[in-house]
């Protein structure tokens, strides 16, 4: 029984936790270290979900600003990285929806003139970028977490706010959709 309670109250004490403790005691340099550790990964997740690097930059700064103010709310039931990625995914999906809504709300003539090519495309990965660009933000989030961040299904589930099984299902569907688009582009 005691072991069950202990496992239920499991907290993660790793290097991130130590940095968080230091920051909460007033050591600003500890937050800098957290940022150095995770800013690239946060940017990559945001970039996988959003169409341009500028949008990903905006979301990255938003995420760290939010964490800077609310780190005291981190309850340590999950790893800090999982908590951070979940915030990132939510912010990026929210940002992507805002972009889509703005695009829809623009007058037709203006939208056709200005906003048509939104997604950035890198020369070496045009096919991948195009295929990802045709997926929804939730699908892109799953693929990004699994293939770019190499998270296992349990971590992907935590980052998406679902179980590991649900994450597996989401990954399967997103991967199938991506494959179909990718094959069409590759032909």
């Amino acid at each position: 029984m005691q072991s069950l309670l202990n496992s239920a109250r499991q907290t993660f004490f790793d290097e991130d936790t130590i940095l968080i403790e230091r920051y909460l005691r007033g050591d600003g340099a500890a937050f800098d270290q957290l940022y150095q550790r995770y800013s690239d990964r946060v940017f990559q997740i945001a970039r996988g979900i959003l169409p341009t690097s500028d949008d990903a930059d905006d979301v990255t700064l938003e995420v760290f600003s939010s964490i800077y103010r609310n780190l005291v709310r981190f309850d340590r039931r999950s790893k800090f990285s999982t908590w951070l990625f979940r915030i990132t995914v939510n912010r990026a999906i929210q940002h992507g929806r805002t972009l889509s809504r703005r695009k829809r709300e623009q007058p037709i003539e203006l939208a056709s003139e200005v906003v048509a090519p939104v997604a950035e495309s890198r020369d070496d990965f045009t096919d991948i970028d195009t295929a990802l660009g045709q997926l929804g933000p939730e699908d892109r989030a799953v693929l990004t977490l699994f293939y770019w961040q190499n998270l296992d299904l349990a971590e992907v589930g935590q980052a998406l706010g679902c179980s590991a099984n649900a994450a597996k299902t989401r990954l399967f569907r997103a991967r199938e959709r991506f494959r179909k688009i990718y094959e069409e582009i590759s032909r």
């Binding site: 600003g28 937050f31 800098d32 940022y35 800013s39 690239d40 990964r41 946060v42 940017f43 990559q44 970039r47 996988g48 690097s53 990903a56 930059d57 990255t60 700064l61 760290f64 600003s65 800077y68 103010r69 890198r122 070496d124 990965f125 096919d127 991948i128 970028d129 693929l143 293939y147 770019w148 991506f178 494959r179 990718y182």
Partner: peptide
């Protein structure tokens, strides 16, 4: 499929996040 997964993994962008300036946030927050 193997080629697709390989390219998808390779396509991971480099980290180019902008520097963070928490001291500005501190003043405001």
């Amino acid at each position: 499929r193997a080629n697709m997964v390989h390219r998808l993994r390779e396509s991971k962008p480099g980290g180019t996040a902008k520097p963070f300036a928490p001291q500005l946030l501190e003043v405001r927050s």
